[in-house]
Design a protein around this nucleic acid. Structure first.
Lengths: 243, 243
DNA sequence: TGCTCACTTGGTCACTCGACCAAGAGTCAC
DNA sequence: GTGACTCTTGGTCGAGTGACCAAGTGAGCA
């Protein structure tokens, strides 16, 4: 029936089928039989390739995560004079792009949420943390790039802003999945982008002659940035830098 | 074994047991046998009281929702001179109270998220929308009360601010469940409270006690200024009304 | 007292689940 | 060709699953 393949090939085939099944019927509906039927291969092959259903779902989770926030990064951002207003437009475009993806494939995000709860429940959150570390890292990258592109610098550690962005994206997702109100979601994005942009300021160029826009060194403290976002002495003075 | 009870009593007993089971083992683990074992009653009683496992889970979802955002409303808010700074402190206190609940009972929020995905999957979101309407209504109430208590008015429709608050709470929950970083979560709350408070202004009392609370024109994309957050009708719903 | 009916109880049915295994078939090195 | 191997396949096991039902029990009412 099926041609001979390497285990890696078979794993990829099973993961692709499992992604479809999870998106359609959820983690609960992704039984070993449902997945193998979707892939068109016998049941035993699944246990040969993955050993366990849990191992398969692990691979599905990892696969689904790839390129999740990366949609925000794609080209086509607005142009204009540098400043926080451009940054705001930049953020609106990026988050709007995520919303487009959400509207186009809501089952994808539902599946991700389902897998998230599944992994939370399975490991008491121990394996979910590195998952979010990826999110944070991607968010930091997106925000740093955006600030650079708009000639701005963040007035507080970019890791804190990154966590704000992740929180916003997460909340945006669950809220839209619940009410499907795309217009309201866009308003939410506008407001959040405005608020996020208010945490940045136009970068000050020391020497007036140089027009080197890409070399504006961010004054973000890079010393203790290896730790989790937000742990850099946050709770002292909330009204500090930007007001 | 069990004394005779009314069906309503039995339902309450079963829901209470199911809440514990869902918090411990998730929706997937809340089998009819697991719930009845937790409640200490025979299996047949469940089908006598609820008919179906789905009906029981419906009741569990409704029960879990009660008093979800209401924790924010409890007394003990900071005092001080009226203004947006007091409002900010007010919001920090309220959201911090929610975070306290989250830290104290994470399984409660995991269960709610689990039930949320379950109801999403079961009805394509049709029954989840009214669920969130309750959230929005509670959020509107909380924010209106807070603004009044702090002598402020929102510079844009309170429904839009309410959706922002719900988005924030949702994102805060998933993010904290993932990384468990309470300190970072508090920083997130500080920043979000500051940003939310920036959407309000000190109420201007032109003549003795004129409480014009919906006057100031919003300088923000006025997507939906109607009653519901966003638009009055979620016309974006791809599936349309239930067939 | 006897009757009615809401409620209880244990058992059973048909089904799905994940895991496992032995036997078979293709493939490559020698 | 021969042997070692990787991969495939169908079947099976034991444990659960939701739903259902007939017989039993007891409280309240006439």
């Amino acid at each position: 029936m099926n041609e001979r393949r390497s285990v890696e090939d078979r794993r990829r085939q099973l993961v692709a089928a499992a992604v479809r099944v999870v998106a359609r019927d959820g983690v609960a509906g992704a039984s070993t039989r449902a997945v193998t039927a979707e892939a068109g291969i016998p049941l035993g092959s699944l246990h040969y390739a993955f050993g366990t259903r849990e191992a398969l779902l692990d691979a599905v989770l990892a696969h689904t995560l790839e390129g999740e926030l990366s949609v925000i990064e794609r080209a086509g951002f607005p142009q204009g004079p540098p400043g926080t207003d451009l940054l705001r437009a930049h953020l609106v475009t990026g988050m709007g792009r995520y919303l487009d993806l959400l509207c186009a494939e809501p089952s994808r995000e539902t599946a991700l949420l389902d897998l998230f709860v599944w992994s939370l429940r399975r490991s008491d959150g121990r394996e979910t943390l590195p998952l979010y570390r990826t999110y944070y890292a991607m968010s930091v990258e997106v925000l740093s790039d955006a600030a650079t592109a708009c000639g701005c610098t963040w007035t507080l550690p970019v890791e804190q802003v990154a966590r704000l962005l992740v929180v916003t994206i997460d909340g945006l997702t669950t809220t839209w999945l619940a009410d499907g109100d795309t217009l309201a979601a866009r308003t939410t994005i506008e407001l959040h982008a405005r608020m996020l942009a208010s945490l940045a300021e136009l970068a000050v160029v020391d020497e007036p002659t140089t027009q080197d826009d890409a070399a504006t060194a961010p004054d973000v403290p890079t010393a203790g940035t290896a730790a989790a976002p937000g742990t850099g002495e946050p709770t002292d003075d909330p009204t500090g830098p930007a007001a």
